[in-house]
Design a protein around this nucleic acid. Structure first.
Lengths: 224, 224, 224, 224
DNA sequence: GATGAATGAGAATTCATTCAT
DNA sequence: TATGAATGAATTCTCATTCAT
């Protein structure tokens, strides 16, 4: 019967509607938080300002996130999930280890998630926030660890496949790779306007995989 | 007149003594600030704690630095000067561009100024402090710019000398090089205990100059 | 017309149904409020929690009580009415003034209304609530005054009947009697587990009427 | 030498001067807190208001007491110490147990510490504050316990000496005695203006020791 | 009527900065 | 000059109350 149907609809849909609305609100808050956080950093970002940007009252923020810390943790986790997905996808699609890593770089530098990954990396760099969030949930550490492990695995595969120099410790390869994703380079990209993203990725990968040196296959002493 | 004489004496000789004492005091404060800042970050460091570490009163700090920000700016500049000297020295001593850069890396990772350079780099990375300091004085930016320029010059020289690939934009080379100095890698050094500083520098330079790829002289398409 | 009839029906019969339901609802809220208030005190009791205990929404509470204060005033008045009834009943049933007062004590300490009276007395003792409620309505004061007057009347009757010492000011007798009803003693009752309610009442009445001092061995009927 | 003396004086006295000033400040804050607390209760008393009453800034309060709770605990302890001393003194001076208890009553009702003891008793009655402070330091509980024990001891002595009825449980005697100290009666004292403190103490002791009942005309020395 | 999301005034607490001594 | 007590703006968080659905 129609009535029954609508009843079911009313039962099922509105519930998810409320949910949807709730999540949309939370998303708006997260977005505002993202912006302000990226602009001012953790300590100079006040809940008041986040609320003002969303156009809601202070208290409403607390309806969605129990504390400022939780808000940032949530933000961080959201970025982390996105970033993980990016890495995972990139790491799966390509054949060679190098191509996979290049994909990741490209995604981070150019992809839609570029700015998000950016903030995420900034946050994870921040000494100040790190310790604070560390207390909160082990979640972050877990995510980070698994991400690092994932990239490390790609490195190892590359070594096994003969693509990468097995003499370089994987840990160093991973660390250095993380360094390439740093916000630093990003700012001198469009802002300096001297380079297109493509050129940047191209140059960076060139350096990472082949080094900056010109080589007629030489240089083998490693230096103390 | 006696009074005048003593006045002059007080004016001339003790003046430089006072000056010296004053500077020593300032230096003590900077050192304490350095320690605490490295430990806790900008916002979790209070003037109170810095003063306590020096063993002076809060107010005395303000006799030397007009504000917390100014203190950090001063600290930053001091680190910057030290770092600049390190770079300058390294850049002059060696012959090849590569060796010069390697020297810098080695200094940063191992030298006495390691921890200082470290803090300095942390600060310069910190979103939070960056914006704050940016407002204060252009000094920082100037120093940074000149440092970057100095390293850029080395890069260019390397290119001219045929050491470095002239196709890679110097800006990217510099950015990437900065990335290598990031605190990130440092923490996985002794703390993970898996690597000695020497091994780390060795591996990092290996990557930067020769890339992670094994090469029988190939790979020339650069991607995208 | 049908419409009119149903209208009248809706006007007359369901009205009282609605009323009844409404009052039941209010009663449920009062009961929940009673519990939480007794548990946590005025300030640590939130409307949210009361609503949650009843299983209704926060807003619904406000359909019945215009404010938290009003809710507590209503609660207070309800307790007061109950308490008044207890006093009234006790004061009427017995012959001697002493027996009437003993009845009251016994009711308060043991009767069904024990816990209610308890809360009521707690509330009336609470400095915090007192001032708040004082502003609200004189109602409380009136009730209290009439209660005090009622007990005072019993005292006077006892004096007239030669039961009580006429030299003791009635006001002091009443005050002291109120003191016996204080929550203090109640907590050292079962919680300390050293005394049964009966023993407590017995001892307390013994003290109030005969004093703690030994005297030439008389008065030995006293308590139950 | 005079100079030396003054030097010593400067060395010794100023230190205690600072201390004295500090304590005076703390005392002023405690006094203000006492007033406001007695007036409005714990929750309706804001640090802001206390500070305003003293004529200092909010932050200054925190220079002396790390938190609102600590302030109240300190206040409580101060009252408690005073009260303990009163009890101790009263309990020691007199010969008979009865006289000792009467002394306590008299001190509480009339003495300089009357109002203080008053607040202290109010606070210790307040459900709301009790639990909060209980968490803070066991100090309060200890004080209370020892006070109760002290009074209990007097009761026991009275029983042994044949002054008090040994059939009445000491715990009940103590509880009831506490009840006599309640703020309740105090308010109907001067405010109602119908009774002098002396009369009040007289009547109350009369009741406590001899009961309200008339009995074959005995006991007529009782109260001072 | 019922709901519960949204509000925002208000409270505790911190800390850079000032200034009288 | 050195001190450190005092200040008060700013921040996080709570919760009674309102109101659109």
């Amino acid at each position: 019967m129609v009535k029954d149907d609508s009843f079911i609809a009313n039962r099922v849909l509105p519930r998810s509607l409320k949910e949807r609305q709730r999540e949309e609100r939370a998303e708006l808050i997260l977005q505002a938080a993202e912006t302000v956080l990226a602009e001012k950093g953790y300590y100079d970002t006040s809940i008041d300002e986040i609320a003002a940007r969303v156009g809601i009252a202070k208290g409403t923020v607390y309806l969605h996130f129990p504390s400022k810390e939780d808000l940032v943790v949530a933000l961080f986790e959201r970025e982390m999930v996105t970033f993980s997905a990016t890495v995972e996808q990139a790491a799966t699609q390509a054949v060679s280890a190098r191509e996979r890593l290049e994909n990741i770089l490209r995604q981070v530098y150019m992809g839609i998630h570029g700015c998000r990954a950016h903030l995420f990396l900034s946050l994870s760099n921040s000494m100040e926030v790190r310790s604070r969030l560390a207390e909160k949930k082990g979640a972050k550490g877990d995510y980070m660890a698994s991400l690092t492990a994932r990239i490390g695995a790609v490195m190892e595969e590359g070594k096994v496949a003969g693509e990468f120099d097995p003499d370089i410790p994987t840990a160093v390869m991973v660390s250095t790779f993380w360094g390439l994703l740093s916000p630093k380079a990003y700012d001198h990209l469009l802002k300096g306007a001297q380079l297109t993203p493509e050129e940047l990725v191209s140059a960076v990968t060139r350096i990472y995989f082949c080094g900056v040196s010109t080589h007629s296959s030489f240089q083998r002493r490693a230096e103390r």
